[in-house]
Amino acid sequence: MASTTESFGTGEPDGDTTMAAITHILALFTWVVGPLVVYVVTDDAFVKENARNAINWQIWLTVYSLIALALVFLFVGFLALPVLGLLDTVFVVIAAVKAADGEAWSYPLTIDLL
């Protein structure tokens, strides 16, 4: 899927941009657990949307990692696993910066599950 951005309002963002950005960074260290906790406890629609995007990406990253792990036996996975780790870091940083700017960025290569 193509990456898209969804702006919440014009001018000033309609949500807690700091918490939304932290939610993406939290996913780097806690997988889906951190964003899921944020998703459950927050009432802010903007933060919920960002948490949902972070959860969906982490789930799909896990799927891609499992496929790459299976491909290790074909020697392709040795290349794919580090690339996935790098992609995760880059995508999370982009999403956090976009969230801090008031945008809910949809991760590429991600189908919405939540």
Rank of each mutant, 00 (worst) to 15 (best):
G15V: 02
G15A: 12
G15L: 12
D16M: 12
D16W: 13
T17R: 14
T17G: 12
T17A: 14
M19Y: 06
M19A: 15
M19C: 06
A20R: 07
A20C: 10
A20N: 10
A21C: 09
I22S: 10
I22L: 15
T23L: 10
T23V: 09
T23G: 08
H24A: 05
H24D: 10
H24L: 07
I25W: 07
I25E: 08
I25F: 06
L26P: 01
L26I: 05
L26H: 04
L26D: 08
A27C: 07
A27E: 02
L28M: 15
L28G: 05
L28T: 05
L28K: 05
L28N: 08
F29I: 12
F29P: 04
F29C: 06
T30R: 04
T30S: 13
W31Y: 13
V32P: 02
V32I: 15
V32N: 02
V32C: 08
V33W: 11
V33R: 04
V33N: 03
G34P: 04
G34Q: 01
G34D: 01
G34T: 00
G34W: 00
P35N: 11
P35G: 07
L36K: 04
V37R: 03
V37E: 03
V37M: 14
V37L: 15
V37D: 05
V38H: 00
V38I: 15
V38T: 11
Y39N: 07
Y39M: 12
Y39I: 00
Y39V: 00
Y39H: 12
V40N: 04
V41Y: 06
V41T: 14
V41D: 02
V41C: 12
V41K: 14
T42I: 08
T42F: 05
T42G: 08
D43I: 01
D43N: 13
D44C: 01
D44W: 02
D44R: 01
D44G: 03
A45K: 15
A45W: 06
A45H: 12
F46P: 00
F46I: 00
F46N: 01
V47N: 04
V47H: 05
K48P: 11
K48N: 09
K48V: 02
K48T: 04
K48G: 09
E49K: 02
E49P: 00
N50V: 01
N50I: 02
A51E: 03
